[in-house]
Design a protein around this nucleic acid. Structure first.
Lengths: 111, 111
DNA sequence: ATTCCTCATCGTATATTTGCGATATAAGAT
DNA sequence: ATCTTATATCGCAAATATACGATGAGGAAT
């Protein structure tokens, strides 16, 4: 990957960026909402709810899974996704730490 | 834009996604950190600290500005950037709301 | 065994992002 | 007026992301 310089930054910066990237599409945020609203993660209704083709939704699910934000078990005909709360909270708190760290230093904007 | 369907989602989903997108690159997270560490927003040393060309940094700054996360005033030879705390906290709290909303419903993962 | 149903994956087209060098711009210094 | 310095913008190339239709794979139902 001679073109991308992401690996030149700290691991924390990369992790945070990867998390943000996973959430950087409205479809994926919508998917997370849907997953959270079902007590049982019987999925596939996602396709009916979203204005996207089945293959596209599948792709978004894959990305969320790769980012570690959701778990998924493929069981033959139907697969089951749900939120990985552990990772989610970890990232969520890391975000807060960043926010607070930023906030502590300088509260008044100068421009 | 016959190809992108982002506008088919709710405004909140789009806003959150746009915010996440602005933070979805380690360079931009690094820039936010740097901006926060200076009490006065004398900028431009950013280029020296980051492993990126000046034009690339300028581009990242522009994106952060477009997303509303930072303010910037161009004053001829040198320009001045700093964090837009208001927008930053607004988005930050919206993220937390989403996180908490998600968390309330279902605490135990089923897969 | 054949037909469905649900989902993943492949191939493809288009759009966007990332990065750099070169150039432009704008103010201060000489 | 010219030079310098700091930054933005342009133009380009490579890489990624987004989206879809078509196809594959794996069970369930008949």
């Amino acid at each position: 990957m001679a073109f991308h310089k992401k690996e030149e930054f700290t691991q924390k910066e990369q992790d945070l960026a990867a998390f943000a990237k996973a959430m950087s599409h409205p479809a994926r945020i919508a998917i997370l909402k849907i997953l959270a609203q079902r007590n049982e993660c019987i999925c596939g209704e996602i396709v009916d709810v979203l204005p996207l083709a089945q293959s596209t939704v599948s792709q978004h699910l894959k990305e969320l899974k790769n980012a570690g934000l959701i778990n998924g078990t493929v069981e033959g005909p139907r697969s089951c996704y749900c939120i990985n709360w552990k990772a989610f909270e970890k990232f969520s708190s890391e975000f807060n730490i960043l926010f607070n760290h930023l906030k502590v230093k300088n509260e008044k904007a100068c421009c």
